[in-house]
Amino acid sequence: MDDDMIFDPSLKKKKKKKTGFDMDAALASEQGESTSVEAPVESGDVDVPEDENLDLDNFGKKKKKKKKTFFNLEELESALPETTEEKPPAEEPEPQEEDLVDDLDLEIDFSKTKKKRRKKNLDELVAEEENNENQENAEDLHGDWVSTDRDYTYDELLERVFDIMREKNPGMVSGKKQKFIMRPPQVVRIGTKKTSFANFTEICKTLHRQPKHLLDFLLAELGTSGSVDGNSQLIIKGRFQQKQIENVLRRYIKEYVTCHTCRSPDTILQKDTRLFFLQCETCGSRCSVASIKSGFQAVTGKRAAIRAKIA
């Protein structure tokens, strides 16, 4: 009913916005002769993700919508507890079962009114649990949403979530995160074909990472070869500027040093079977990180020389 109302227009709107007409046009103009074969494949490929996006949107909307209706319902209920249309009479005779379920959920601490409304259908239970969680938050303040029928804006929701986070753990999401301070890489050209990364080992120490790991990453990203020499500086084949090395380092830190959840640099990189995991010492999160692969390497040297080497 109400849900459908919301469902439909957004569906149409999305579709309209995205139907790949200019994509096809662009392709046609760019590729001229080649479009006829590829077109069906592409449109298929494009359509699928679109639907996914659509579902995601609508899912979010529905959930929000649900939350609101339940909220209103609950108010109603507390006002006149006997006459809710939603509650089937069959629910009353089996309070024991409900109690059992409630015991399982003790940690989440639902309020009594919510328990009363609970049904035995497992699907609905799950859905309700979500709603209840939302409700808990919704109860905080923000009364301006309760009685209206409008949709929340993204900004409102974002502000709200940050308000809640700040309230629940002061200091953690203060917005001013500890900055990661590191000395910049010292990068010097050696002759015309090589570059020295002089404080490579020192940087590995500040980052608490194995030199080999950082080395693998640097070389894979730069698409070149290199090694650490006797003075513990890294010699890289090719000409690179400090700024460029800095860029790669920044990406390394983002992927392999700072926690993906809380951005704390206090982390440990562990190898587990074939994958690397980043274990955070601050928030305890653990997630897998991309493995380092140089991937395809084009032949850039003199082919004659390579052939000679193989032969």
């Binding site: 579902d55 995601l56 899912f59 959930k63 649900k66 699907d123 799950v126």
Partner: peptide
Amino acid sequence: SIQNLNTF
């Protein structure tokens, strides 16, 4: 709608 919530 509840069905929908669960399958996604």
